[in-house]
């Protein structure tokens, strides 16, 4: 066998579309929210609660990475997003437990305090949805990679857009 010619096709970034894009949009909102919050906290009162504010900054970075990874797709994008979502899930669980068990350690709110209750628990649900989406995408990617060389684009034709006759 010569070089496996289908590898680039399987690894080519496939930008998120459809439902994946909804996920990207939610992640982008959280990247914005967490980033703005961390920037304000670090700039104006870092000394008050360095731990909580550094966590805010970490959360912001994680959200940005997850957004980019999910939006870009492809194998590397999925890997980035997988790591980000895993860190995020761990973060929200650990910080959630700690902030309830020892509130003094977290004098100010972070996105992940109380399992993200300040944000309607979305921070708790989001990484789970992200990981589920990545698993589905990974399966689709693998199925495509196993296909024989003719690079058939997935038969994912969008539904016809003609309005239904009224």
């Amino acid at each position: 066998m010569a070089e496996p010619t289908e590898v680039p096709a399987a690894d080519a970034p496939r930008p998120a579309e459809g439902l994946g894009r909804v996920l990207v949009a939610v992640y982008a909102v959280f990247a914005l929210a967490a980033g703005a919050r961390a920037a304000v906290q670090l700039a104006t009162r870092f000394s008050e609660a360095p731990m909580a504010y550094l966590l805010s900054a970490l959360a912001a970075v994680v959200y940005v990475l997850a957004t980019i990874g999910l939006a870009r797709g492809g194998r590397s994008g999925r890997r980035t997003a997988f790591v980000a979502c895993t860190v995020e899930l761990t973060g929200v669980l650990v910080v959630g437990v700690l902030s309830l068990a020892d509130p003094d350690a977290f004098p100010d709110e972070t996105v992940w305090s109380g399992f993200g209750q300040g944000y309607g628990y979305v921070p708790l649900v989001l990484p789970v949805l992200g990981l589920l989406y990545l698993r589905a995408q990974g399966r689709a990617g693998r199925a495509e990679g196993q296909k024989s060389p003719p690079p058939k684009s997935p038969p994912k034709s969008p539904p016809p857009k003609s309005p239904p006759p009224s």
């Binding site: 579309e17 459809g18 894009r21 909804v22 949009a25 939610v26 982008a28």
Partner: peptide
């Protein structure tokens, strides 16, 4: 603004939900 730009490039029915998020 970001929501409109992002959902305008979405070609499936999920464009509406993409706009609903922001």
């Amino acid at each position: 603004v970001a929501g409109v730009l992002f959902s305008r490039t979405e070609t499936t029915r999920w464009a509406g939900t993409v706009l609903a998020v922001p």
